[in-house]
Amino acid sequence: MIAYLIRRIIYAVPILIGVNLLTFALFFVVNTPDDMARMQLGVKRVTPEAIEKWKQQRGYDKPLLVNSAANGTAKLTDTVFWQKSASMFVLDFGYSDDGRSIGREITKRMGPSLAIALPTFLVGLVVYVSFALLMTLFRATALDMAGVALCVLLMSVSGLFYIIGGQFVVSKLWHLVPISGYAGGADSFKFVVLPILIGVMGGVGSSSRWYRTIFLEEIGKDYVRTARAKGLSELRVLFTHVLKNAMIPILTGVVVVIPLLFMGSLLTESFFGIPGLGSYTIDAINAQDFSVVRAMVFLGSVLYIVGLILTDISYTVVDPRVRLQ
């Protein structure tokens, strides 16, 4: 188990190096720092001096990969790659275009992001699984058909509609909660309840239907027949036998996103003005602040890999057959 985890962590390194190289290529090779400067300063009538100054301020004036002017290790370290990309391995994200530390911003914004994402995740999981179980229990009846039809309808609706529609009905028509904004502490409840509700709503269709498929697949297996042959009631069969087995495929899809909850949701946060990492990312995209986007890409993949490892660990909890090696 420990050996397995160590191997997984070691295996994560080349993946992160790959991500790092990919972002580096994307941000510094496809478009050179000169292009970036021209872009930021306005494409037309930019003096070479202004570009140089812009690059210097941000440390983009160094050579990309190898600094032939420097000596010793500085040949490699005094470069854009080392200082802008490689440094991310120690979670040093540098500064955004407005001069703030990205690392500090991330720690500050994780809280609000989690305040939305975590409850959405938990409430969602419970709702989706319950709905799917309900459909499974009444499988091949009109209720099940209606449930599936509802799921297809719900998953055909754009996520933007849930947000816009929800804001319009709940906040604007009924004045139940503020349209947007965020406050810490006990006040936060009224700000987060609608985003959470909408977040859960947005996933009902696809998730419930997917879980239903998993349950139905399990219910067709031989051990379920054995359980029925013992004289167990259909509910007992569903809850003690099917649910336990269905958790295994469900976990694959679910555990991996848990670390990513820190990243928040781009859409929800920007619509509701939540000062989390999602809206941070959106703002950076709109402002074309590449250092922030780069940092978020790297952070995202680190969290994803953590999620993968967590998934493996969770398997050992629910599936006795899995002994990690």
Binding site: A227, R228, T240, D319
Partner: peptide, 25 residues
């Protein structure tokens, strides 16, 4: 009928490997 199943009338199946719940002792 549930009283009968597993009570007065029990059944065993062809594939013992698939007929037992894999995640229960």
């Amino acid at each position: 009928m549930r009283e009968v199943r597993g009570g007065t009338m029990a059944m065993i199946f062809q594939e013992p490997g698939l007929s037992l719940n894999p995640v229960m002792t």
